[in-house]
Design a protein around this nucleic acid. Structure first.
Lengths: 272, 272
DNA sequence: CGGCGCTTTCCACTCAGTGGAACCCGCCCT
DNA sequence: AGGGCGGGTTCCACTGAGTGGAAAGCGCCG
């Protein structure tokens, strides 16, 4: 029994990968291996995977091998990355993707009128999930990519969710706001006041609160029954956004998207 | 032993799902379950999955349960579909995605000038993989979606690959061309002659060869060293495309994309 | 040359996974 | 009502797939 204790103790917590105890079922272990990949770690070595997953190397070796054979991971040199199988599989996720597709034309309109990068977010648990993005015409490195998850308190879209979503969501988000830049607002009372203002004015802004030099402005996409389907926003780099020019455009687009989504009338937005 | 034979016989071939024998390893079985989903089957019931995978229901039930708990599948009613976990995971597949991102602005330009749906393909084995698509402004039913794989001999982008790619690729594709519509060209000599023409004129067309009523026109995206990086095309529905108006636009965009891609390829690794 | 970190292979033990069978439930047909 | 049907769910005794420590292989650096 002492050997068992030792084993568990030595394993310790995974260095920074997926949290939680090591799962016993093979399937869960396989999936945990996939979990070790995220936007900051899209290329991992075998031992990276082992460390981040908390699984023994030998086990990882075998499971990773199966994933590679399947096509879910691909191996280049001694490193692994997500393969095209998973990519095309993920695209079948109709859930929110229908919304992205339907919103795209209106997002183009916003791009055409404002010349800024246009973002569409849905609420995913305690994060704003970047569902669709229309990049501006100037080829530059993007701040965020489709599929990224942003903090609710530090993104314009996120603030829209906090302002118009259920109160318990805001409560949870204001509990421990992370500081991301010197400008991030982490004081709960000040955040609460900001949300009040969002509700009054009808749009949310962030000024270099998530990324230095980047400003955001967003409006909620509200369904007929008042629920928030999504958040639509633009990003400006360098210069501050001018609400007078941007907000009306966003609001018209948001209303069109909501109407279109309602017409589709299948089932509502993101599962909580 | 007879019971074993009977079992194998009764199981038979999966009705139309993933081919090959039933794998013995748990991991492979789990992944096989994911394989039962494709663009034509994005919502499956448990017994659908069982049939298409060739795995017993009880086994599917358990594995699917784990996938749901993980977030890779999501259950609505009695049906399953791909969940957002797999979606965002798939987006980490850097492999070609950088190209899609860099091409997007130029594809917007093509949309703006031609008003047609714009497609960007890369070669994926013996298929043209739809990497990025800029849908037109009119919200309508899309013919193909990002992630779909198209036959090489029946799509404009595919023909571009056949015409400008390695000869063995064309050889393989001309071996057994599937008929998809009454207009599909399946005669190898005629196809070969068409490819000759593509090389001479610099662009490829399809006239209702993959989908009735839909025409395609595409040009190759050629790198400085002459290799074909991708194919860029537009789709017209109903009316035939007018090459004189469309091809120059496509070619300019293709050159820009190739140039941009070349610039990007210089830097070695994707820095974290 | 010896040490270090990573990957790969091996193999005896054992427990997770298996899947047939029974059960439950909603639906349609008669 | 009844009963047949096509799902989904639960159960459990059996067993071989999966496990993971250990050791060998490999490339790199000082």
């Amino acid at each position: 029994m002492s050997s068992l204790d030792k084993r568990t103790a030595e394993r310790g917590e995974p260095s920074g990968g997926s949290a939680g105890p090591v799962p016993k079922s093979v399937a869960a272990r396989t999936l945990r291996i996939l979990d070790t990949f995220d936007s900051g770690h899209c290329e991992l070595s075998l031992s990276d995977i082992s460390r981040r997953s908390g699984l023994p190397v030998a086990t990882c070796h075998r499971l990773v091998g199966e994933l590679v054979e399947w096509g879910g991971l691909l191996r280049t040199g001694g490193r692994y990355r997500i393969g095209h199988k998973l990519w095309s599989l993920g695209l079948l996720s109709e859930s929110h993707h229908g919304l992205a597709e339907l919103a795209a034309p209106y997002m183009h309109d916003v791009l055409f009128l404002t010349k800024h990068v246009v973002n569409l977010f849905v609420l995913d648990g305690a994060h704003a999930l970047l569902l669709e993005r229309i990049s501006g015409t100037q080829p530059g490195r993007a701040l965020h990519r489709v599929g990224d998850r942003l903090a609710l308190h530090a993104s314009a879209g996120g603030k829209a969710f906090l302002a118009y979503g259920p109160p318990e969501l805001a409560k949870a988000a204001l509990a421990n706001p992370q500081r991301l830049t010197p400008n991030t607002v982490i004081d709960p009372t000040r955040l609460r006041r900001e949300l009040e203002q969002v509700r009054r004015k009808g749009y949310a802004v962030t000024l270099e609160e998530a990324v230095r030099g980047a400003h955001g402005i967003a409006v909620p996409v509200t369904a007929a029954d008042g629920s928030v389907l999504a958040a639509l926003g633009v990003v400006t780099v360098g210069t501050r956004p001018r609400p007078a020019a941007i907000v009306p455009v966003l609001q018209i687009a948001a209303r069109s998207i909501a109407r279109e989504a309602g017409r589709l009338a299948v089932r509502g937005g993101p599962a909580a």
